[in-house]
């Protein structure tokens, strides 16, 4: 059984069809890169997987560990093990980062029938993960993402992933806008979480990140469909030729 199986997925946002028949299969242990031009619908795909309200699925199916993912609400999907690292992480004034992370983790623990961690146990658990991602204590005390730099926001997404240990991680352009040092930190964080039990969907616009996080499969996404799939070499081919050929194929 595949970890994630998407078949013939069509979805609309505000009446416009953005996903036009997506087929994708992710096995546990595999990292799939999804590359495509801006506006091709990559974030839409990520949001539909995560269950964002307002994204209307008109056809097709998403199966996660054999369950009908589309039947679950967004919070249920997350507790089932689906994680989305946002392209644009959301600022939440008035909720500290620690409180946010602790509530998220405890919600998942409750789902698994485990006791909630108290604030002290939680912070202890957090320390190592923070260090690896170069996240300071100060960032945890501040309201979620408020006033964080672009790099801090992205590292914070990876920290959340590290805390929640999802079965499927969808990373939406987590590499965008990072300088080379920040990119390395983020890539190390992602690599640290690669495991035989976990699948990853690495959505990116640039080939650059794929030299740090080497994917098992690469898909080219254009016009709301996957137009080509291959191994990691497909990424370099894409880098040389650009998206034009593939976009043409989608239009044809």
């Amino acid at each position: 059984m595949a970890l994630l199986e998407i078949q013939g997925l069509r979805a609309r946002v505000e009446g416009n069809e953005i996903l036009k028949g997506v087929d994708l299969r992710v096995e546990a242990g595999a990292v799939h890169a999804v590359m495509g031009p801006n506006g091709s619908g990559k974030s839409t795909l990520a949001h539909v997987i995560a269950g964002r309200p307002g994204y209307e699925v008109t056809d097709g199916s998403i199966t996660f560990e054999g369950r009908d993912l589309l039947a679950l609400a967004a919070d249920e999907r997350a507790r089932a093990g689906v994680f989305l690292a946002f392209q644009y992480p959301v600022e939440i004034p008035g909720v500290t980062n620690t409180t946010f992370l602790r509530h998220a983790l405890n919600a998942q623990r409750a789902e698994r029938g485990e006791a909630a961690l108290d604030p002290i146990e939680f912070v202890r658990m957090l320390r190592d993960k923070m260090r690896a991602l170069d996240i300071t204590e100060n960032l945890l005390k501040r309201p979620v993402n408020v006033g964080f730099s672009g790099g801090e926001k992205k590292r914070n997404e990876i920290l959340q992933m590290a805390v929640l240990e999802p079965r499927l991680a969808v990373l939406d352009e987590t590499d965008s806008g990072l300088d080379i040092d920040a990119l390395r930190v983020v890539a190390d964080g992602v690599n640290a979480l690669r495991s035989s039990a976990r699948g990853m969907l690495l959505i990116t616009h640039y080939q650059r990140v794929l030299t740090y996080v080497v994917p098992d499969h690469v898909h080219v996404f254009a016009g709301g469909v996957i137009v080509a799939s291959g191994g990691k070499d497909l990424a370099s081919e894409l880098e040389e030729k650009g998206y034009a050929d593939f976009v043409g194929a989608a239009a044809a």
Binding site: A50, G51, R52, P53, G54, A73, A74, D75, A78, R79, F83, L84, F86, P89, V90, I92, P93, G94, V95, T99, F100, H103, A104, A107, Q108, E111, P143, V144, Q160, L164
Partner: peptide
């Protein structure tokens, strides 16, 4: 704010808890 609400939901926080957190934060 629906975006904030979705962010909390996407981390597995149940809707009523997410609402509570956002109301208290507001």
């Amino acid at each position: 704010d629906e975006t904030m609400l979705f962010y909390l939901l996407s981390r597995g926080i149940p809707e009523s808890d997410a609402q509570r957190m956002l109301i208290q934060a507001f």
